[in-house]
Structure formats: C-alpha cells, structure tokens
Design a protein around this nucleic acid. Sequence first.
RNA 1: GCGAGGGUAGCCAAGCCAGGAAACGGCGGCGGACUCAAGAUCCGCUCCUGUAGAGGUCCAAGGGUUCAAAUCCCUUCCCUCGCACCA
Length: 953
Amino acid sequence: MSEYDPQELESKWRSRWREQGRYEADPAGDEETTFVTVPYPYPSGGMHIGHARTYTVPDVYARYRRLQGDNVLFPIAWHVTGTPIIGAVERLKKGEEEQLDVLKNTYNVDEDTLQDLETPMGFARHFIEEHYKKGMQDLGLSIDWRREFTTNDDRYSQFISWQYRTLKERGLLEKGLHPVKYCTNEDQPVTTHDILEGEEAEFQEYTLVEFGATIDDADVTVPMATLRPETVRGVTNAYIDPGAEYVVAEVDGEFWFVSAQAARKLDLQGRDVEVRYEYSGEALVGETVTNPVTGDEVLVLPAGFVDADNATGVVMSVPAHSPDDYLALQEAKADDARMEQYGIDPAAVDAIEPIPILDIEGYGDIPAKSAVEDAGITSSEDPELESVTQDLYNAEFHSGELHDDYGEFAGGVVEDVRDEFKEAYLGEAFDTMQEFSEEVVCRCGGDVEVAKQDTWFLRYNDADWKRKAHDAVAQLDAIPDNTREQYDHTVDWLNEWPCIRNYGLGTRLPWDEDFVIEPLSDSTIYMAYYTIAHRISDVPVEDLTQEFFDALFYGADAVEGEAPEQALELREEWDYWYPVDYRCSANDLVNNHLTFFLFHHAELFDPDNWPEGITVMGMGLLEGEKMSSSKGHVVLPGEAISNYGADTVRFFLMNSAEPWQDYDWRDDQVETTQDQLERFWRRAREVVDAPEGDRDALVQADRWLLARLQETVATVTEAMENFETRTASQAAFYNLEEDLRWYRRRRDLDAPGARWTQRRVLETRLKLLAPFTPFMANELHEDITGEPAEDAAWPAVDDAFVDESVLVEERLVEDLTADVNDIVDVTDTDPDVVRVYAAADWKYDVLDTVRDVGSDVGQVMSEVMSDPELREKGNAVNDLAQDLVEFVRERDDDELDALAGVDERDVYEAAADFLGREFDATVEVYTEGGDDVVDPADKADRAQPYRPAVHIE
RNA sequence: GCGAGGGUAGCCAAGCCAGGAAACGGCGGCGGACUCAAGAUCCGCUCCUGUAGAGGUCCAAGGGUUCAAAUCCCUUCCCUCGCACCA
C-alpha cells in the first residue's frame, strides 16, 4: 500500500484484530497487569465525538501499557439503569416531534427501525449496537468484547443485590422521609425528564414561624413562611391575601391557619392534615397575631402581593430588612381608605415603624429604607427592586451582624448563625415546610409539588465511612493532582443519598421489590464485575446467592460451610485483575460518580483493591460551542471517521489538549491533522522503500538526530506515564518532525549513514505513535520490520546515542545559521562571502573565571584584572564579563560542561559547506586574532565564546 | 455566595509547580524557492522600530518581593465547570 488510504488500511486492521481476538485478555503468568476502565455509556441516544475522546484516552494508555509488556484489560458494558431510556421511549411512542427529529436526523434512525425502539431494551440495544459499539470498533479501541453486559441483566442484578444487602447489613443504608417532585395530577413522583416547566426548580426549606392568633374565639397557630428565620425579631406586622381561600386545619394535632393549597402541600409532606374550617383571608385581616419569639402583638394587613399558593400563604413583614416589606408598609400607610375598608384604624398602621435587627456596612440604620432610597425606588412595581433586594439580602447574609437582643447569637454574622438560630427554635416557635423555588409543571399538565416519601438512603454521612473514603483518596493517583482536593471536599460534603427510585430499568431493591436502585448507586463497584463477566454466564442465575459473591470477593473463609466452587474459580480472575489501575472519566463526575466509586470500594474491599488512579477529562466543544444532541449540534464518530479516518480522529483528540483540559473539535483543524498524517505516511513510505543503510557510516548530523530521538523517547515515556497525551504526541510527532526538518537541510539523505538513521528514527517513532495512531503505525512498522508495532516493545533510551556534546555543537550551527539569516534579512543583502570568527582564547579564560567566581560582575572583574594581560584590554573585558555573566546564568552546568569540551572553530569549519549551500556563498572560518585572519570590516573582535562574529559581503 | 479551574501575540495553545531568551508548537496571513500552472513540499517573515546579528514595549488590570517576574505574593476585574437526588 503506497498511497495513504485510511479507510482501506483501517478496515484491514479492524478485521485482523477481530479475527485474532487481539485484545481479549486472560490471566497468564506473573507479568504486570493493567486494568483500565471508563464509565459505561448510557445509550439513551447516540455516541458523539465527545464520547470518542473519553474512550480513546484509556485506549491510548492501554496500548501504551501493552507495549511496556503488561497484560492489559480494557472492558466495556452498557448502563441502562433508570428512567432516561424509558422516558425517551415514551416520547417516541407519543410521537413527540422533537424526539423524532433527533432520532431521525441526528442519529439517522430509519423509518423501519423506529418500531424496534419502542421498548426500553430495544431502544438501548439499537444505540448500543449501531452507535456505541460500532463507533468504538471503528475507532480501534482495544476492548475485550467478550465481557460486555448491561445493567439490566439478571446476573448483574444479582451482583448489585449482593452489594446492597451487604451495605444494609453493615448499617450503611437507612430508611427515611425525603422530598421528591410529585405530580398532583398523576399522583406519582416525577423526574426532571417528566417536567415541562421549572426543570431548574430547587427544593427550598421554609421556616414556619408559629404566630399565635384567635379566630372565632379559638386559639390557632398562624405559621408564617420565611427563608430568613433570623429576621423574626424584626417583624412589625403580617400580610395576607384577603381574597384567597384559607382553612383552619388540624396539622399533627395542632390547629393551623393556612391557605387551602398549603394544607394540601403539608399533607403531601408527610403531615397528618385534617381540614376543619374554611375561611377567606379577610378573616384574619385587622386581627393581631403574637410573635412566638418576642411575644409582640402585631397587626395583620391585607396585601395583594401575597401568593396563597406559595408556602403557607401568610407572610411576616420585616420592613427594616426587606425592601418589599418596606415599600408595602409605606403603601399601606398611604392608603387610609383601603385600611378603613378592612376595618383597620389608619393610625395603627401609621404607628408601625421598622425594627432593625442587624447592622451592615454600607447601609443606614434601617437597611431596607436606605437601599430603596439610594436606588430612588418609590414603588413596589419598580423593576429595579428585585436586584436591590438581592444585593441587600446578599449583604445581610454575608456581613450582617445580629443585634444584642439575639442573646447567644448577638454579634454573629447571619451566614454563620442562621442554621443554629433556626435549630434553636425548631419544635417550639418554628416548624418547616418544603417549597419549590419556582412553579413546576408536569408534562401531563399537572401541578408538581414537593412531597415527602419513604426512601432508602446511602449513609455517606457516616463518619467511619467518610474516613475510609478519605483514606482511599489519599492513596489515589489523582490526575491531574489538583482533583484530589475536590474528592476530599466531596467526601466531606456528601450527605445521605437517596439510592432508590419508584420506577426505571435496573435492579430491584432486594428486600422491597417496589423500588429500583438508581443509576449512580448501581455503578460504583461494577468494575469488579468485568473481571468475571465473560465467565459468570456459566453459573445459573439462581446460584448467584449472597454466599456466592461473599466467596467470590472475600474468599472461602467468608462463608459458612463449603464455598461454591465456581465462585472460587471466578475469584482467581478477580484477584488477578483487581484493583482498577486507572479509571478515566469526565470531570463533572467528580462530585458524584467518582466519589461514590471511592466510597464503595473503601467500604467493600481491602485497601489493596482500592482504585489506584483516576484520570478526569475535560469537556468537548464543537466549533467553539457546547455540543448538544437535541439541537443536532454534534459530530458523530462514524461521520468523522469516514471523512478523516480513525487515526486522524484519534490523533486530533489526543493532541489538541491534555485529557483533563477542554478541547474544541474544529473541522479545519481536523483537516490539517489529516494532511499532516498523510505527509507523515508519504515520508515514511520513502524510508521503508529505501535501502537499509549502514550504521557504521554515521556522521555528526546523524548522531545529532539520534541523540534528539533519545530525548524524545524519554519525554514521551514520561508523558505517557502521566496520561499527558498531548505532550507525548506533540513530542513524538511535531517536535521530532522539526528535528527532521533541520536534519533534511543538514544531511545528504541518500548516504548510507543517513539511510540507517532515518530507518532507526522511523521505527522508534512508529512505536511511540502506535498508541495514538494504531492503524497507520502498525502497518508501517510491519512493512519495515515484519511485525506490527503493537507486537514490539516500547523503546528505551539507547545510551549509545545519548550525546550532550553533539547536541550543543549542532546548536551552535543552528544559532550561527539564524544569526547570518538575521543579518541577511536586516541588511537585505545576498552575500557572496560569509566570514565567521570564533572568539580569541583569552575570552574563554574570562568565561572560566565567570564560572568559577559566580554572577557578581564586580568580583569577576577584580579577579580578571589581576591578570596584567587582560587588564590591558580594559573596557573590552568589562563588557565581555557582563555578557558572559548573563550567558552563564541562562545555562545549566551540564550544558556549560558540554560546551567547554567543544572546539568552536572545528564545528564551524565542519559546517562551512552546509552554510555555503544555505546562503549560496563562500564561507570562511577564522579565529579572532589568528595569524591568517581576514577581517575587512573589523568585525572579529565582536566574537564571544559560543557566539562567533560574522561578516557578510 | 461556596468549591475548582482559567484569562499569554489575529485564532488555538506551551511555559507558571522548581523566577533568568519577544515567550515552544500549530492554524491563519505575507514574501520567496520549486512548477507551464495548481496542489504538495521547502525556506524566511508575521508586537513596534531598525540597511549588522540590535533596541523598545509586552503575557487580564493594578500594586509588591527580587539584581531579575508570564512565572512568587497581595488587590481588583472577567470567563468556565460543579453546588445533589438528572445521568
């Protein structure tokens, strides 16, 4: 194959790998093992180029470790747990346009196939086979395909059941009430995907301040909802919507006056609610209510802005700290008629004054007043009010200091004391209820409310468990290293995690089949399942008992009586591969999946089997923008590969950024990459087809290139160890290419020594590139040596070619060439003669002195001036010493030592022919002050050690 | 707001941890070589000034430490990601 035809080349290697089962890995001798994993894909849609990188990073590492002689396992499976696939199928069955558009136009599903997608597993199967699996195979991922499974498989479920029974036995699962999104129309919990409006809504916990009131001669509680419980001492009055429906309901045995909607919500939130009487809001207007904290009696005023459908429908007013309340109070004071209409004495309203409860810098004594006045706001309709309010709330939260009457909380900053303050009154003056931050509507059109449901939690807040998780973080190779603190932070921050859902694919909770274990909770230790996935199918499902997995993971001693033999056989597989060496994953999973992964390993396995490393990956952009399958803004791997070839796609993805950095797929850049690979191919073919050459005929330029090659090998190897795919591929491809560019100028490429050198460089380079562009590299390597690169060994630095002095010598020639070039450029002359003057001997003596004495110019001078011969030269020595101090400072000792062994004049004489060709001129080399020196322009004395003077004419 | 990361020439991007070169590469642009021509390839230039390899001004902004700062410290501004029951 002489033309570069990636499609033909790549399909040939794909079938070869498939036929050979090339990447099927089994326990063998006692060689090193490497086990890399990547989160199994979720096939609720197709694969795009962003996924391609996620899977290529571990593949590149896997291929690298194989070249290093490891037995490498790289498996994959399919995550189908949960509701997204089910949701997608439902939208398809309903004939939703957007969904059909994505399926047909983005993922090219044809009309006939659509009906196969109408069952969840049918849907998943389609995307697994037609997109993910095909995409992965086209990319040339070195996956052991015998081990694939889905998380809906019976045997997998038995494994997950074992995990959850074990956690329950260890007290790490707990049952409790938890807020969920609940559709009041369908009477069931809903997920984000079911929500039409308010997808971003958050759960908010309101504090209910239990004011006392008397209604129809009966004592009732009027719970007023607030997000700022600490303002309770600043309440001057309350507001209610006089036209809305309210009720007195018995809530957990107490009589509460709340809006009709609030009574229903409280019912959903696990309260025992019985509605006893119905009222309109007006019933409370003009009454007084008693502040449970201060004992103050305050007036209830009518207000249209109160929303009976938010929280309890009754709010307390804190005009000193809420711009809204302040303005509402001003408006109430100004509207005597309205007050009278509700039977309220306007004088009583006029008497209401704001009560400040905290101090903040930058605002007056009454912050809400000064905030409103400074902004020139006079009406509650002013659009600027919202941002003024937000600013004040932020300022109060972060820097407001509570007044003295707050007792133990006095002087405290709101941010620090709010929760404690609230805690102190809970059960007495305070209660709580949940509410969304915005309105939420179900796709069915029904109203979604917060409901509390019995749920099972994973107790990530367990102190012992947290400690073990921290230990797992501590022994982890976190790549990049700054992710380590993110794991620690997440471990500390994680609280109880509800680990079940009401419906969806996956594993049923073993002791309560109504619930299914949710996706982030059934994917924490499944890497262990890979080690046995291809053999566990020989075990009948019913034999996969608790004892079976106990024996498998904890050994024969962990079970009473005879351990199942098959379990012990599988245990050997597990022992052989575990632990996971590296898990490669997206950086947005640090906060949940990856930390869960650490938690569960830390609990269920010994430290020896804890994960050894995690590499996180950055986001992919497409032409500078976020990819989005719903907008069709994606590139499918299949398209990219058929346009450019898999090697180009892989190389671009690995080379454009390090794995943890964000990268940008840009078509023009990918095209350039393809051109570069094609150029590489052409050049490589020339070398392959040329005679082998002769190692004994090496000259300076050959030794230089071979020395550079050794540096490259060292750089690439170190980078590969650290997952620095960009550094590695840049060094192996671009940096070496630059060296070759110089080499081609310097050397007659047909000379036997050059032939040998080029072959050696190519062969080594193909091995270095094999993890990145396996198709091309294997093909060329096989052409040149008879075996594919992947069957060879990773190159080691060859000491025979490590040569610092040849490197510095060549550097002198490069510098000289660049200098002459500069002069030619600036003077705009085409030289006939180039004269090069190496520095006089005494100048090297000054250099030696500088090296001995150090960088203090004064000291260097006094040393130098003690030599009478040098003293004669006066200023020239002074200038030189200054320059040489700089020169020495900028170089390390190795380089200076190497330079010290170089005879500059010899180097320039040897390069004279080359320079002559470069500039089409005669090149003459002299030594400054030599007997034969020809120096018409008086340039020679400008020579410095390793910086020859130059004259052109 | 909290946690993490970032702001480098027209664009992408390295250097920053271990201070010492107008600052690696690539793309784009300009000029030249080769060619009938195009493509490919090769060479040079691409912050400002400059007919001798130089000088000047630079790494978000401002201040500081140092003989020396893109790099260390402080302040400010801006951007990205995450902040949970979505996977």
